[in-house]
Design a protein around this nucleic acid. Sequence first.
RNA 1: CGGGGCGUAGCGCAGCCUGGUAGCGCACCUGCCUUGGGCGCAGGUGGUCCCCGGUUCAAAUCCGGGCGCCCCGACCA
Length: 571
Amino acid sequence: MLTFFSMRWSQSFIPTVREAPADAEVASHIFLLRAGYIRQVAAGLYEYLPLAWRSLLKIQAIVRREMDTIAQEFHMPALHPAELWQASGRWELMGGNLFRLKDRFQRDLCLGMTHEEAMAALAAKELRSYKQLPQIWYQIQTKFRDEPRPRSGLLRVREFIMKDAYSFDLNEAGLDVSYQKHDRVYRRIFDACGLRYVAVEAHSGAMGGSQSQEFMVLGEAGEDLVALCAACGYAANLEKAQAHPAPVADPEAAGGAPEEFATPHQRTIAEVSALTGEAPGRLAKSLVYMVEEESGPEAVLVVVRGDDEASEAKLGTALGGREFRPARPEEIVDATGAPPGSVGPVKARRPLRILADHALRGRHHLIVGANREGFHLRGVTPGEHFTPEWADLREVRSGNACTKCGAPLTVSKAIEIGHIFKLGRKYSHALGVSVQDEAGSAAEPIMGSYGIGIERILVAAIEQNCDKSGFWLPRSIAPYSVIVTPTNLGDAAIAAASERVVAALTAQGEDVLFDDRDERAGVKFKDADLIGIPRRITVGKKAAQGIVEVVDRATGAMREVEMSAIERADW
RNA sequence: CGGGGCGUAGCGCAGCCUGGUAGCGCACCUGCCUUGGGCGCAGGUGGUCCCCGGUUCAAAUCCGGGCGCCCCGACCA
C-alpha cells in the first residue's frame, strides 16, 4: 500500500474556493474545482493538483495490487506510428476522435486512444508457441481522445488515465477464463475503492466482440443508460437491454386488404394516434437509414412499434457492423415515394430491405405510413402485407417487464467505470499474432480487452458521496485518511494536544492532514467538510482535559474521545 | 456537425440597450481586533474589458470577422 507523509495545510497547496466557476454544473466537477483538486487548462484537459493526485495514486495502487494477481504490468508508448492503426483499419475508422500528428520527417503518428494495436503488435513479434499462452498484459497509462464534446469536468475528457489490459488465449475456452478472472478482479477493485456499482451486460460492438460487461455507478451525472430489474438482478446497458413491451390489444382479425386514409396534417405518431383514436402502440413507426453496402449506400426501412424508440446501437448489431446513418429527406422520398411522416413498409417506390422489431411479430391490422404524402394505411399485418427481417430494435423503457422474471424494469443514468470485453481475433489477425498449436499448425490467439477509467472512479465516488457542503471519499482512496483541526492554535494546550494527536496518528500509518493554518475555526470546518477527507479530529476547548472530537464526515456523527485512546489507536 | 448561452481583476458578477474617468462582493497584502461554522474595523495591491479589423473626436459599449469556454442534441474503442 502507498504511504505518504502527513502534511501541514500551511505548507500544502490546497487552493479551496468558495465559488466555483459558473461553467461547472455537475456535483463532482464543482467540488473538484472548489476543493482544489483540479484546474482546467482547456476543454477536456485538466491539471491534477496534489489532493487529486494523491487520490488517483491510491486508486492506481489498488488497481495495481489487484491486477498483479492475474496479469503483468507493462508500459507502452502513448505515441503510435500510423502503420499500427492502418493495419487494424482504425486509422480511417476512428475519424476525428484520433489525435494525429507528424514527426519532423513528416511521418504520420497518433496518440493512442487505446492499445489493442500496440499490444497485439508486441504479441505478434514475441509470441511463438501455444505454451506461452495465456498471457494477460496490462498498463496504467494516459489515453488521448479528441472528443467532439468533452463535458462534466473529469467525466469526459480528452486526456485521461486508463488501466487497460489485454488477454491472449489459444481458444474460446481460454478466453472465458481470462474474462472471468477480470470480472472477479474488477469487483475486488471497485469494492476496495468503496464504490456502490452494478455490472451490466453491454453492447459488444459491431465487430468481433462476443461478450461484454460494463461496471456502472448509478447517478444523475452519468452519460449511459442502464435497465435494471430489482427483482431478479437483470442489468443491461440500454444499448443491449431487452424487455417485454407493454401489451397492446389488436382488434379481432378480419382479414382483408389495407385501406388508405387521408392524414393531411398528421405526421407524427402522436398526431396520427389522435386523429384515428388508436393507441400509439397500434401504429408502426418507420424510419429510413442509409447503410453502406459494397455497391454504395442503400436505403433500409426500420420499423418499430409506434410507442417505441428505435435503438441505433441495436440497429448496428442487426446490420452486422456496417456503417449507417439516418437518411436525408430527399433520400427518403427517393426510396419510399413519400416524405418523413408518411413512410411505411408497404408499397415503397423501390423494393427495400425491411427490418422490423420483434414487438411487431404476431400483430395485425396496424396503422402505418402509406408511402404517399398525407396518407396512412390501416389494416396492415406484418408477414402478410410486408415481409420484414425480424430483429431486436427497440429501446427498453422504464416499466417494461423483465424478460427473465416479469418484474418492471427501471432505466437509470450511470457512469461507466470499467468495461471487460471479449474481442475475438480481429486484432490478432490484423497485426499478425500467430503461435504454433499442439499440432504444429499456426493459430491466431483470441483476445480480450479490459479497461478501467482511473479518474472516473474518483468522479463516481464524489457523485455518490456528496452533500451541499462538499464530499467525502472512501478512506482507501481519500487523499488523506483523517484531518486534524485545532480550533485555535493560539491556545497553548490546543496546540500541544494537536501535535500529539498528529504524531500518534502518523505513527499508526494514517495519512494525516494537519490544518495548522492561522484561520478561524469556522473557516477550517468549512474547508474540512469540502475536500473529501472522511474523518475529522477536532482539537478544541477540552484539549486541556485530554479530550478531542472525532467527526464522521458522511454522517456528521461526533464522538468525544480521550487523547490516550487516540494514542492507543483505539478510536 | 446542428441548436443555445457566455467571454469585464484569481472566483462570482454589474456596467453594454442609450459611446465619454472600469465598478461591486469574495479572495489576496498590511495593521488592529477576534478565536467552535467562511467574524469585525481601517488601509491597500491587482485590469491587453478574449483577439483582429471597422465606424467615431472618443469604443468594454456600435458594426464585421475570428478565437475560446459551457450546455442540449448528434457522436462516443
